[in-house]
């Protein structure tokens, strides 16, 4: 009988992703709850060195698929490696991060296993052999509780919902005898790291977003400065990305990124329903807007009705005075 949890421990360039630590934490919780064990699979080239770190998060066994053919991610190749681990572990639950790698890979793995995939879940439970999960739909305007009728249950877990917690174990390591097949080599990929020093939008603890009220691409510098003072990522409304002031990759909202940082600062953003859809699950929301009627104030925990060009420099000054 299938039993236990298998976690895809995502790495890039030999670094275990923060999202992977979160999913390992979710997996550990499930293992405790169900009285089963968690194993993990790590795929890449030169990733042997990550097994200790993975065991810190409670994986009692780590499967390693280490091969030059796995140096760069492709869904086809990585799915073969994950499948090799699934065959070994015969898990009841398989967890991936709901990020661009996990959301590409999990459905491929699920389809090969001929099962569905609970995506972007914010909570998962596993007891009495039954897996259930909660996930947002309609961009967070509502939630559904789902159950899994077939095994294994394949899920992707929303970033920032399970803060990483270490639960060190003395685990075992098992290398998988797998290399990408010719079928997988039908596509090849390269990864180019971006130069930005700022945290990744979907992973960031803090985000400062600017809207049309910022006025121009050049004026966005003020948003960047506040972001840097807070150690935050930069986000934008669609009005801003459509105007070409910022790249689409920074758009927050229903047709952009969904984020849930600890702190979200919305500057010069009116708070259209499609923008709220992408950020309403942020823990603390601050709005700076000169229009007291702006809908953003309805969901902001703290609002300042002011010109952002006056408020933001004060904000930066205050932060600098704090240290």
């Amino acid at each position: 009988m299938a039993e236990g949890i298998l976690v895809f421990a995502e790495q890039r360039n030999g670094h275990l992703m923060k999202a992977a630590k979160e999913v390992l934490t979710a997996g550990h919780t499930l293992a405790e709850e169900s009285g089963t064990e968690m194993s993990a699979v790590v795929v890449g080239e030169g990733v042997d060195s990550l097994t200790d770190e993975i065991a810190q998060f409670g994986a009692s066994n780590v499967y390693v698929a280490d091969d030059a053919g796995f140096a760069n991610y492709t869904g086809l190749a990585y799915a073969e490696a994950v499948n090799a681990a699934v065959n070994e572990a015969d898990p009841a639950v398989i967890l991936f991060p709901a990020d661009s790698m996990g959301q590409d890979l999990a459905p491929v793995v699920a389809a090969k296993l001929e099962v569905g995939n609970g995506s972007d879940v914010t909570k998962v439970n596993y007891s009495d052999g039954k897996v259930t999960a909660r996930r947002p739909v309609y961009a967070g305007k509502s939630f559904v509780d789902i159950s899994f009728r077939k095994s294994p249950a394949v899920l992707t877990v929303r970033p920032n919902t399970y803060p990483p917690e270490e639960h060190p174990v003395n685990g075992t390591v098992q290398s998988l005898d797998v290399t990408p097949s010719d079928n997988a080599l039908r596509v090849s990929a390269t990864f180019e790291e971006s130069e930005s020093e700022r945290p990744e939008l979907t992973e960031a603890e803090r985000i400062v977003s600017g809207g049309r009220g910022v006025g121009s691409a050049d004026d966005f510098e003020i948003i960047e400065k506040l972001a840097d003072a807070l150690g935050a990522a930069v986000g934008a409304s669609r009005a801003v990305t459509d105007a070409g002031w910022r790249p689409y990759s920074e758009q927050v909202g229903q047709t952009g990124k969904t984020v849930s940082p600890a702190l979200y600062v919305a500057c010069g953003i009116s708070g259209a329903i499609q923008h709220l859809a992408g950020m309403r699950s942020s823990k603390v929301i601050v709005a700076i807007n000169k229009d007291p009627e702006a809908p953003i104030f309805k969901i902001a925990d703290y609002g300042i009705v002011a010109d952002l060009f006056e408020a933001i420099p004060r904000f930066i000054e205050e932060l600098e005075n704090q240290d």
């Binding site: 929301i285 309805k298 609002g303 300042i304 009705v305 006056e310 408020a311 004060r314 205050e318």
Partner: peptide, 14 residues
């Protein structure tokens, strides 16, 4: 939510 203030002077309180 709470409106902390109506101008930039509210920032320290924020």
């Amino acid at each position: 939510g709470k409106i902390v203030g109506e101008d930039a002077d509210a920032v320290p309180e924020l």
